[in-house]
Design a protein around this nucleic acid. Structure first.
Length: 424
RNA sequence: GGGUCGGUGCCCGAGUGGCCAAAGGGAACGGGCUGUAAACCCGUCGGCAUUGCCUUCGGAGGUUCAAAUCCUCCUCGGCCCA
């Protein structure tokens, strides 16, 4: 079955709301559209929560449209009041510049920025056009067109008004800045569509309204539902925090594991929204998964696909290899352990330091698995720790415990592990 | 500026002179059960140390044999008034 772009989005559950759907469809089918999507530069890496938006841009580009990724240098300094109960910390300019650079780097893996192609993606920073706007101009040209009533109607603003910490004028003004961005991109880069998560709807339509009132132009809005997990956990968060796209922040193995553990109910939707697999293929996989959920075919495919997109095919191979070493039945051998190098966290210690008393405790603390000696002893006592896949309670590790005379694979439960390498 | 209520462990939140390292809940970690799932049950959850000691309840002082709890000053926040 062939679907046009909007139908494809629909089938993937990527449409939450849009302005005039028929008009938008006409525009998308009749030529190349410039569309923009804003990304918050709160860190120097994207996380999986923003991935859905990145892929959305990719889908548009694949259909011949031109994505404009806006990294919010200015808006990052102000902060969107959405999704938080208290005031956000403002980023300074240096941090922002670093974050913007890091994000651009990552986007290049998913979008074609090649200037020679017709619909090359663009990266813009709204600081470039908002940084020097005089306050009076802004109030007159932007503020005049948007009513406070409209701004107060926004859910995120409303809830913050009722919260005990209140909301600063700065964050309250966020909507104006975003509206201004859309207007500017509409004027200067012919953007006629803005896409974003459903929490952005108010901000986006403020922009379409500004465009209409100030320039008499028309522009579209399209939002997707925010991705939440069926178990209520915040999507993209693990016990360690965000799932980052950056391999340094979230090792590819952990990244892969995260998707391997996704609840059944989320598998199909994530396959649709976080991979580039064709909708019909996903439906087939989902059906197979549903027939035998205990085999976790869906999770496996999801983990492989997303990891391949973000980290490449080789990372997928390594992650699966590592999983075999960690969870498999085969005896642990040196080759398996060596295959874990670079995939799981590792700590190297000096040969001479190995034979200390109670070295299990100090090793657990040194590698970060335990936060203090007490913690390490406690966990050992509770049978939480396995060394080279064997549960251990004693604190004494001997030379003979070293695999290949230099490796210790320390596991704490199913999720935490660390490789100790004795050097020399 | 005036008044008032409040700042407790990762978060929420009890505690209002000793029985407090501090209830309860959440989060987190582990175990059991499972499908490396969910739900559920159990354990742990300041630090050091082989049952004792040390440091915590916004900050600094003070009262007391003894303070998270009382007093003083400072600081930060909510609400009301101006």
């Amino acid at each position: 079955m062939t679907r046009n772009l909007l139908e494809d989005f629909e089938a993937r559950g990527l449409i939450h709301n849009s302005t005039d759907r028929a008009a938008l469809n006409d525009a998308l089918e009749s030529g190349s559209v410039s569309l923009y999507h804003g990304i918050d530069p709160t860190a120097d890496s994207l996380h999986i929560g923003s991935f859905i938006g990145v892929l959305a841009m990719r889908r548009f580009q694949d259909h011949g449209h031109r994505p404009i990724a806006l990294v919010g240098g200015s808006t990052g300094m102000v902060g969107d009041p959405g999704g938080r109960s208290d005031e956000r910390n403002l980023l300074d300019e240096d941090t922002l510049a670093r974050n913007v650079a890091g994000i651009k780097n990552q986007l290049a893996r998913f979008l074609d920025f090649d200037g020679t192609s017709e619909n090359a993606a663009r990266l813009v920073n709204n600081f470039d056009w908002t940084g020097d706007v005089p306050v009076l101009d802004f109030l007159r040209d932007v503020g005049k067109h948007i009513t406070v009533n409209q701004m107060m109607a926004k859910d995120s603003v409303k809830s913050r008004l009722e919260s005990e910490n209140g909301i600063s004028f700065t964050e309250f003004s966020y909507m104006l800045l975003q509206a201004f961005d859309y207007w500017w991109l509409h004027e200067n880069m012919s953007a006629t569509l803005q896409i974003g998560g459903s929490d952005q709807w108010g901000n986006i339509t403020a922009g379409t309204e500004l465009i209409r009132k100030r320039s008499g132009g028309s522009a579209h809005a399209l939002t997707w539902p925010l991705l939440v997990r069926s178990d209520g956990a915040k999507f993209g968060k693990s016990q360690a925090g965000n799932i980052w796209l950056d391999a340094e922040r979230t090792l590819p193995y952990e990244f892969h594991q995260y998707f391997l553990r996704v609840p059944d109910d989320d598998v199909e939707r994530m396959l649709l929204q976080l991979t580039l697999l064709a909708v019909d293929d996903v439906l087939e996989i989902a059906a197979a998964h549903h027939a035998a959920p205990e085999q976790r075919l869906g999770q496996q495919r999801l983990a492989d696909e997303v990891t391949a997109l973000v980290h490449g095919a080789q990372a997928v191979e390594q992650a699966n290899l590592a999983a075999a070493a960690m969870f498999g039945n085969a005896d642990l051998n040196v080759e398996m352990v060596e295959s874990l190098r670079g995939i799981i966290p590792e700590t190297t210690i000096n040969n001479a330091d190995y034979d200390t008393e109670q070295n299990a405790v100090s090793l657990l603390v040194a590698c970060g698995l335990c936060k203090s000696n007490s913690d390490a002893r406690r966990k050992l006592g509770e049978n939480q720790i396995a060394v080279n896949r064997v549960k251990r309670q004693d604190t004494d590790l001997k030379r003979s415990d070293l695999l290949g005379e230099r490796y210790l694979l320390i596991q704490m439960g199913k999720k935490n592990r660390h490789l100790i390498i004795v050097d020399g």
